[in-house]
Amino acid sequence: MSIKITTLIENQQDNNDTLVNEHGLALFIEFEDKKILFDTGQSGDFIKNAEKLNKDINNLDYVILSHGHYDHSGGFREFTKYSKKNFKLIVGNGFFNEKYKLIEEGYKFNGNSFSEEFIVKNNIAVKYVTEDIFKITDELMVFTNFERSTEFETLNEKFFIKKNEGYILDDFSDEISLGVKYEKGLVVILGCSHIGIVNILKTIMKRTGMPIYCVVGGSHLIEADELRLNKTMEFFKENSISLLRLSHCTGENAIYKLKHEFRKEFIYNNTGNSIEII
């Protein structure tokens, strides 16, 4: 059994400076006979990178969108022009809420480039995950409804949902993560971890009774103060997480600290990077 995860696009450039990069995330996951696209970046440029990397994303089994922010779902509309659309779309409950970010000038739209009507019009099969664990197969699981058990991971007060004529704080109840069963533990793929990476991982461990072997994707430690960052690293150590392949919204300070603290266990998962777990 092997798991292969290729970063099709991410904030940082690829090692050979031949691919397109952007603020966003798109991962291509190959596991057994399944091919999964996890997030689509913001523009659709991940498609060009997939072609250069010789990754066939035209015949996917699933497209999973971790949450309704433009830098994770923005490339989906462009992808539908490219794809044969024989995949199933998996999103969290509330994915199509109108999401905004509070900036100095006011509320700026920060959500999806497509609506539920677009999904219907294009005959795309969709699964809205409402259950705690949605099993794609016995080895592939989608998680949501994460418990908020840490005191140091609080909701970011700049993200909102538009409701009627007003705005309410976004609790990111639409956020989903993917887990892949591996003989040494779970491989967990994250989008942005707005709920808190420790909250997410603790919830997954509690529900599955399984240890976590590898974590891939966005950690949102970019906004973490020293207390939160130290507590997060303590959690990684206490739970003996062997591989950390974080990127996107992790932030320079957290990257520096993680590299120093975990050395071989941590690799920044930039554009074009390939992870193979055998």
Rank of each mutant, 00 (worst) to 15 (best):
S2P: 10
T7C: 14
Q13L: 03
D14L: 00
N15F: 11
N16M: 11
D17P: 13
V20E: 14
E22V: 04
H23A: 15
H23P: 13
G24I: 03
L25D: 15
L25W: 05
A26S: 07
L27P: 06
F28N: 02
E32M: 14
L37E: 00
F38K: 02
F38W: 06
Q42L: 14
D45W: 11
I47L: 04
A50I: 05
A50N: 06
E51K: 10
K52C: 02
K52A: 05
K55N: 11
K55W: 10
K55F: 05
D56G: 06
I57V: 05
N59A: 09
L60R: 04
Y62I: 09
V63L: 05
L65N: 06
L65S: 06
H69W: 07
Y70M: 15
Y70W: 13
Y70S: 15
D71P: 10
H72M: 15
R77W: 15
E78S: 12
K81A: 14
S83K: 03
K88F: 10
K88R: 13
V91W: 07
N93W: 07
G94D: 04
N97D: 13
N97P: 12
E98H: 12
E98V: 12
Y100V: 07
Y100F: 08
I103H: 14
I103R: 15
E104Q: 13
Y107A: 04
G111I: 05
E116F: 00
E117P: 09
E117W: 04
E117L: 12
F118L: 10
I119S: 03
K121D: 10
I124N: 00
I124A: 05
A125E: 13
Y128I: 15
T130A: 09
D132I: 12
F134P: 07
K135L: 15
E139F: 09
F143M: 01
T150Q: 02
F152G: 01
E153I: 00
T154G: 11
T154S: 12
N156V: 00
K158I: 01
F159V: 03
F160Y: 05
K163G: 10
N164Y: 04
G166P: 04
G166L: 03
I168T: 08
D170A: 09
D170P: 04
D174S: 06
I176N: 07
I176E: 06
G179Q: 03
V180K: 02
K181I: 07
E183N: 14
V187K: 08
V188K: 00
I189M: 06
L190V: 08
L190D: 09
G191Q: 05
G196D: 02
I197P: 00
L201F: 09
L201R: 01
T203N: 05
R207N: 09
T208R: 13
T208G: 08
M210I: 09
I212Y: 09
I212M: 12
Y213V: 00
L221K: 01
D225K: 03
L229N: 02
N230W: 11
T232I: 11
M233I: 13
F235K: 00
K237V: 06
E238D: 11
S242D: 14
L243I: 11
L246H: 01
E252F: 03
A254S: 03
Y256S: 15
K257C: 14
L258S: 02
K264W: 15
I267C: 15
N270F: 15
N270V: 12
T271Q: 12
I277M: 10
